[in-house]
Nucleic acid binder design. Structure first.
Length: 296
DNA sequence: CACCAGGTCTCTC
DNA sequence: GAGAGACATGGT
């Protein structure tokens, strides 16, 4: 029993998702893989490249409304059976809680160039600020689509001056963005799809501002490479807790061992674990500050 | 005013 | 290669 969403669920620019067992907009969007989304009264609005869609909660269903339904069918990875993925991952006891917590997660198929720029910005940064910076880049350099701005093309970003890029709040990452945009414009990403994952990873890491973790995010979210395990501070904590207490392990080592363990399920395992730890930690932080506020 | 944020770069041993 | 520091910026 799978839970792929059939293509025939599309009509009149609407994709209707009736089986929500592996589709939860909040799980998908708040799992740190994407930055251009906004809450609305009825759901979410999500932007990708020069397109957007609306997610609308409709009783026990979710409707995706866009003028490019076939694009967003692929964007939301609707052809994939996440029930089967979760079943395979359920053999790992350390994952069961995280999978239950984020059961509606899916890995989006995002534009590669957009993920390159977005995750260069993500390094040593926090998610609210990442979102703001990307938003400013869209306003400053993205095409005016009439009511919203597209994500800037690599060509346009390559033309931008370092000063302009800094005005968007990118800080020291401005030169990384410019250099990456120039490389993409010159075909840096074209050879990538033919490479195996380790080669593609090294290729990405040849760009300034792209280390192992950012490269893994690009491969997972932009190319749907499943055999990567982006390892940041949060995953590092999970690793210490669930897999091995190792004070001297580098994140690079952890990532390698986790890919060795999870293989082609690595990307999925990572998302469930990341969403779980980050949301629960966020809540404890909130309740702590709330306690402090009550006391004062 | 320190410290932190989905790390990465550079310099040194 | 492994280990320290620096790094723009904005929020607490």
């Amino acid at each position: 029993m799978g839970n792929r969403i059939p293509m025939n669920g599309i009509s009149n620019n609407l994709i209707t998702i009736s089986d929500l067992s592996s589709f939860d907009p909040t799980h998908i969007l708040e799992s740190g893989q994407v930055f251009r989304y906004y809450r609305t009264e009825s759901g979410y609005k999500i932007f990708s490249q020069n397109l957007f869609c609306s997610l609308i909660y409709d009783n026990a269903r979710v409707i995706i409304d866009s003028n490019r339904p076939e694009y967003f069918y692929n964007y939301f990875d609707l052809g994939r059976d996440y029930g089967s993925i979760k079943q395979k991952l359920s053999v790992y006891p350390n994952l069961t809680e995280a999978i239950e917590f984020g059961k509606g997660i899916r890995i989006l198929n995002q534009d590669p160039a957009e993920t390159v720029i977005s995750f260069i910005i993500s390094a040593n940064n926090n998610i609210p600020r990442i979102k703001k910076i990307i938003e400013r880049l869209c306003v400053m350099f993205g095409e005016d689509m009439g009511g919203y701005y597209a994500f800037p093309t690599a060509e346009r970003l390559a033309e931008a001056s370092i000063e302009q890029l800094r005005e968007a709040g990118t800080g020291y990452r401005a030169e990384y963005i410019k250099s990456a945009a120039l490389a993409i414009k010159d075909g840096f990403l074209q050879s990538l799809s033919g490479m195996d994952t380790p080669t593609a990873r090294k290729h990405l890491m040849s760009q300034k501002g792209i280390g192992g973790k950012v490269a893994d995010c690009i491969l997972l979210f932009g190319y749907h490479r499943e055999d990567v395990f982006p390892t940041d501070v949060w995953i590092s904590r999970v690793y210490q807790k669930f897999f091995a207490e190792c004070e001297t392990c580098s994140r690079e080592q952890m990532s390698k061992r986790l890919v060795g363990l999870f293989g082609n399920l690595s990307g999925y395992a990572q998302q469930y674990l990341f969403y779980h730890i980050r949301q629960t930690q966020k809540n404890t932080k909130q309740s702590k500050t709330e306690e402090q506020n009550e006391q004062t």
